[in-house]
């Protein structure tokens, strides 16, 4: 489903002394099957923007289109079917678990959306395998599981409704390197194999560079940059000014270019391949 924002403004508590404009004239397009990343620090408007994607918030002015759904200032009665198509994994999603068993918690969404629960049940083993959980957790209480496992249960609870668009707000927050890698490769496979549109919010610029094909930079409610991650990260100075960094490997490449005149292009090399390229360039003697 294609997502289009047209001149979207959002104001919290309008016409009150507490009014605060969180989004200013946002226009953007996320194409079907994209892996889009949103960057910006706390208070930049990222989470406000995300909440427009499944109708938790509605624009104060402007239009948001998600496939055939249209969100404007007016109330939309089809919000439920939109929410089924647009799955959201919130930050620390393990905090939303509440049922007695893992199975019941995962099936919570399908029940609410009026889906065929038996069919959803049938899909449980596949979903569990996808998120990397053993099937014997189904009858256990989610609160007996480790933090990392609880997060997978929460993600499974979103995947079971078979959304077309998956939004993830800092899905790796608080995980150790292994946990992070597993979650990032799960997202990759959902994107590639299931052709889901992925929208990722993260502070890890490395993840944006490695996984996303579109990057959007927000600052103080405005969309300040957009494009392919490699291009966006070219503008190191501009990003620094709004308190954002660029991935370490790109920093290194830039510095080597400036101090040693080494011509190295970033082509999604792994760190050790990048080391190899640097070694080769060094042996070639640089351009000095």
């Amino acid at each position: 489903m294609e997502i289009v924002f047209e001149n979207v403004d959002f104001i919290y508590q309008p016409n009150s002394p507490f009014s605060h404009q969180a989004l200013k004239d946002i226009s953007l397009t996320i194409k079907d099957g994209d892996y889009a990343a949103f960057i910006g620090h706390t208070g930049s408007g990222k989470s406000t923007l995300l909440q427009h994607l499944n109708g938790i918030l509605r624009p104060t002015s402007g239009t948001v289109r998600i496939g055939d759904f249209e969100l404007t200032t007016k109330k939309n009665n089809e919000i439920k079917s939109l929410r089924r198509k647009v799955g959201v994994v919130f930050q620390y999603p393990e905090h939303q678990l509440f049922e007695e068993t893992v199975e019941k918690d995962i099936l919570f969404g399908p029940k609410n959306f009026g889906m065929d629960v038996e069919e959803a049940k049938h899909n449980l083993p596949t979903i569990l395998e996808e998120v990397g959980l053993p099937t014997d957790v189904l009858q256990r209480s989610p609160f007996e599981l480790s933090g990392g496992q609880m997060r997978r249960v929460a993600i499974a609870g979103v995947l079971i409704t078979e959304p077309n668009v998956l939004i993830l707000d800092e899905p790796t927050a608080g995980l150790d390197p292994r946990g992070r890698k597993q979650i990032m490769s799960l997202i990759d496979s959902l994107h590639k194999k299931k052709r889901m549109t992925i929208i990722l919010v993260t502070h890890h610029m490395e993840d944006v560079l490695r996984h996303a094909n579109q990057a959007f930079v927000l600052n103080k409610g405005e969309l300040v940059m957009q494009g392919e991650p490699v291009e966006v990260f070219q503008e190191e100075e501009r990003l620094r000014k709004i308190g954002l960094g660029i991935p370490e490997e790109l920093q290194l490449i830039n510095q080597l270019k400036q101090t040693l005149g080494l011509p190295i292009t970033y082509l999604h090399q792994s760190p050790s391949e990048l080391g190899k390229d640097i070694a080769k360039a060094l042996h070639a003697g640089g351009n000095r």
Partner: peptide, 16 residues
């Protein structure tokens, strides 16, 4: 803040 967060999460899972 927490109440707001959780109610939004559950609303996204189709609760009304």
């Amino acid at each position: 803040e927490e109440t707001d967060k959780i109610s939004k999460a559950q609303a996204s899972r189709g609760i009304d």
